[in-house]
Computed example of a mutant assay.
Amino acid sequence: MRRLASALLALGLLVAAPAAAFAHDVLERTNPADGTTVARLPGSVVLTFSEAPLAIGAQVVVTGPSGPVSSGTPTIAGRDVTQAIAPTAPGGDYTVSYRITSDDGHPVAGSFSFHATIGLDGSTATAGAAVPVKPASTSDDAQGSLLVPILLTIVGTLVLLGVGGFLVLRGREADRG
């Protein structure tokens, strides 16, 4: 009985111990970098995340002065998500909006911008208004996603400790009688 109680207590401590972080993937860098000016528009944009995102539902939309210029679907290789740009894209201000599925299964979305002096089609940029950058909002999602694991950990720990305590007391009664 004591061994069973010890095993249950150890299991309870394992459940109560902090598990792997329940954090979403974070956009670490982009190419072109956010807010920069490039001499010539690249053939693709690359987003590098803190962890390898899942391919499920990956979306990257590159929008320039003439509208969306994304070409095909984004490709994922490790932590990098690459989106090709149409060869007819002109120079100008560009916004890249993304939505990927984090390796923990939650969506991560955001956007960044850059300016290209010359487009892939050789055209020069026209003067335009600066494009504001919208940071990804993950604080509400992160708090909501942590609530369930925390509650399950607390309830599971209490149940295991209760069962372990019951078995210890029962074992003491058995030793007396």
Score class of each variant (00 low, 15 high):
Phe114Met: 12
Gly162Glu: 03
Pro107Asn: 03
Gly12Arg: 06
Ala10Tyr: 03
Val60Phe: 04
Glu173Met: 11
Thr153Tyr: 00
Val15Pro: 00
Asn31Lys: 04
Gly43Glu: 09
Pro132Ile: 03
Gln143Asn: 10
Ala7Leu: 11
Lys134Trp: 11
Leu169Arg: 15
Gly12Lys: 05
His115Ile: 04
Leu167Asn: 06
Arg29Leu: 03
Ala10Val: 09
Ala86Trp: 02
Ile76Trp: 01
Pro74Leu: 03
Leu4Ile: 13
Ser97Pro: 13
Leu120Trp: 01
Ala21Met: 00
Val163Leu: 15
Ile150Asp: 00
Thr88Ala: 14
Glu28Ala: 15
Ala5Phe: 04
Arg3His: 09
Pro74Val: 04
Asp103Ser: 15
Pro87Leu: 12
Tyr94Lys: 06
Gln83Asp: 10
Thr88Lys: 08
Pro65Asp: 14
Leu151Cys: 01
Val159Asn: 05
Ser70Ala: 13
Val148Ser: 07
Leu152Phe: 13
Gly122Ala: 13
Asp103His: 10
Val155Asp: 01
Phe166Asn: 08
Arg176Leu: 13
Leu167Met: 13
Glu51Ala: 14
Ala7Trp: 07
Gly43Ile: 06
Val45Cys: 07
Ala109His: 01
Val69Lys: 02
Asp25Ser: 14
Leu167Ser: 02
Gly35Ala: 12
Val60Leu: 04
Ala33His: 07
Arg29Lys: 15
Asp140Cys: 02
Ala7His: 09
Leu11Pro: 00
Thr153Leu: 01
Pro90Thr: 01
Ser70Tyr: 08
Thr36Tyr: 03
Ala20Gln: 10
Thr82Cys: 06
Gly144Ile: 01
Gly57Arg: 06
His115Phe: 15
Val61Glu: 09
Gly72Phe: 14
Ala39Thr: 12
Val62Asp: 14
Val81Asn: 12
Val155Phe: 09
Ala33Trp: 04
Ala7Phe: 07
Leu13Gln: 05
Thr138Gln: 14
Arg170Leu: 11
Leu41Gly: 04
Leu120Ser: 13
Thr48Pro: 01
Gln143Gly: 07
His106Leu: 13
Lys134Phe: 11
Leu120His: 04
Phe114Asp: 11
Ile76Leu: 12
Gly165Pro: 03
Pro65Trp: 02
